[in-house]
Amino acid sequence: MNPGDFQIAIVENGLATAEELIGITSSDIENLEKLFSVQLPDSYKSFLLFCENNMEMLGSTPILYYPEIINLRDSFDNLIEDELKITTPENSFIFYSFDELIFDFFICNGNPDPVMYRVVEGKNNIESRGSTFTDYFFRLIETCDKSKSNDAFKYY
Rank of each mutant, 00 (worst) to 15 (best):
M1Q: 07
P3F: 07
P3K: 14
Q7K: 15
Q7L: 13
I8H: 09
A9L: 13
I10W: 00
V11L: 04
A16S: 14
E20C: 02
L21S: 07
I22V: 15
G23H: 06
G23D: 12
G23F: 08
S26V: 11
D28T: 10
E30V: 07
L32G: 02
L35W: 05
V38N: 02
Q39S: 15
L40A: 03
L40Y: 05
P41G: 09
P41Q: 11
D42M: 12
S43K: 01
Y44E: 08
K45G: 10
K45V: 10
L48R: 06
L48I: 09
L48S: 08
L49Y: 08
C51H: 05
E52A: 15
N53Y: 04
L58V: 08
L58S: 02
P67N: 03
E68D: 15
N71M: 12
R73Y: 07
R73L: 09
D74F: 08
D77R: 08
N78S: 14
L79R: 00
L84V: 01
I86R: 00
I86Y: 01
T87S: 14
P89N: 00
S92L: 00
S92G: 04
F93Q: 00
E100Y: 13
I102E: 13
D104N: 13
F106A: 04
I107G: 01
C108K: 00
N109K: 01
G110S: 11
G110W: 06
D113P: 03
V115E: 13
M116Y: 03
R118H: 06
R118P: 02
K123I: 11
N124M: 08
N125H: 10
E127P: 00
E127D: 15
T132W: 03
T134D: 14
D135A: 10
F138E: 02
L140V: 09
I141D: 05
K146F: 08
A152S: 15
K154R: 12
Y156L: 13
Y156I: 14
